[in-house]
């Protein structure tokens, strides 16, 4: 066999080996993580019901004639509160005689976003004659983007501030029932 042919075969073989190694099947661990029960300790203190319009205008590529438009309106429920899973007995410091108590809790965080399919309405859908209509997959991809925009808007909504305000009111009410007169809530 001529030398150059041997070199070519060796190169092709090496490429297959390298590519084959790179594409070795990996164990999918996602299934294991999903199913089952888990314990949490979250105190939900505020819910924001929000509305959002999700719209897209697909003008397409230069070789596609006509456009497609779609518009959804949706309702989502955001819940915020404090995660009490790290709460320990040492986080409460009290003096019964003086009637003072100080409780340290974590800062408020977003606990859940719920965008039920039943509350997503397709308001408008227009497709030019030479274009194909929106598939279920395309519609879902658009709704996913809408969900992401809602998640991104959380800091500007003031929901976390409202949750901390409600947390303060909640603990003050609870500890005042226990007979404490001076109650301090600290967010750490």
């Amino acid at each position: 066999m001529p030398r150059c042919l041997r070199i070519i075969f060796a190169t092709i073989f090496s490429a297959f080996v390298v590519l084959g190694c790179g594409r070795a099947p990996q164990e999918d661990t996602t299934l294991k993580e999903i199913e089952g029960l888990s314990s949490v300790k979250e105190l939900g203190l505020v819910e924001f019901r929000i509305r959002k319009i999700i719209k897209a205008n697909d003008v397409g590529e230069w070789y596609k004639i006509g456009d497609r438009k779609i518009l959804f309106s949706c309702t989502a429920y955001l819940k915020a509160g404090v995660d009490m899973s790290s709460f320990r007995i040492e986080d409460v410091v009290y003096d019964r005689e003086a009637g003072t108590v100080s409780i340290s809790v974590p800062h408020a965080s977003l606990l859940s976003i719920n965008m039920p399919p039943s509350e997503i309405k397709l308001e408008y859908d227009q497709v030019s004659m030479l274009r194909s209509s929106f598939t279920a997959q395309e519609r879902n991809l658009l709704l996913r983007q809408g969900e992401k925009q809602i998640r991104d808007s959380v800091p500007s909504l003031g929901i976390l501030e409202k949750a901390e305000e409600n947390a303060r009111a909640f603990f003050v009410s609870l500890f005042s029932k226990m007979g404490f007169s001076s109650i301090e809530v600290i967010f750490k």
Partner: peptide
């Protein structure tokens, strides 16, 4: 295909006192 940027409108604010302690996935 990208969606347009649209505002998020807060319709209702509800005070809660929900202690969530278990989840099922």
């Amino acid at each position: 295909l990208k969606i347009d940027e649209t505002p998020v409108v807060v319709e209702k604010v509800r005070t809660l006192g929900e202690l969530t302690t278990a989840c099922y996935y």
